[in-house]
């Protein structure tokens, strides 16, 4: 009878096995931390890397801003050209853009309501 009391219930056994497994994982990860040699580079290496990357980021930003400004100038020029030279096209584009915005907003709203 006493032996029967020692047998763990299904849930207890499952929890024990789970804890044992988690412990085993922790031990495995600890061994990985200790066993795999990690070489931390010198401060000079880090400083050089930061300097290099900062320069790359700066150049990337300049490129992005330039592209953005060029596209903006092209769009504004086209709009001004149509406004003064082809006003019917300008107003047609404005009308189509407004219809598109309203249609897209309604569609998005309906989608959200249906989701809820």
């Amino acid at each position: 009878m006493s032996n029967l009391n020692e047998i763990p219930s299904g849930k207890e056994q499952l929890d024990d096995e789970q804890n044992e497994l988690i412990q085993l994982m922790k031990v495995g990860f600890d061994q990985l931390d200790e066993g795999v040699e990690i070489h931390t580079p010198s401060m000079e290496w880090f400083e050089h890397m930061v300097g290099e990357q900062t320069e790359v980021i700066r150049k990337k930003r300049i490129k992005e801003v330039t592209i953005f400004l060029m596209i903006a100038v092209i769009i504004v020029s086209m709009l001004l050209f149509t406004l003064y030279q082809l006003p019917t096209i300008f107003f047609a584009v404005q009308g189509l853009a407004s219809i598109f915005v309203v249609f897209y907003s309604v569609k998005d709203f309906v989608k959200q309501v249906n989701k809820a």
Partner: peptide
Amino acid sequence: FAILFQGNYS
């Protein structure tokens, strides 16, 4: 940046 990275690299 370099000090922060070196401290957290490993």
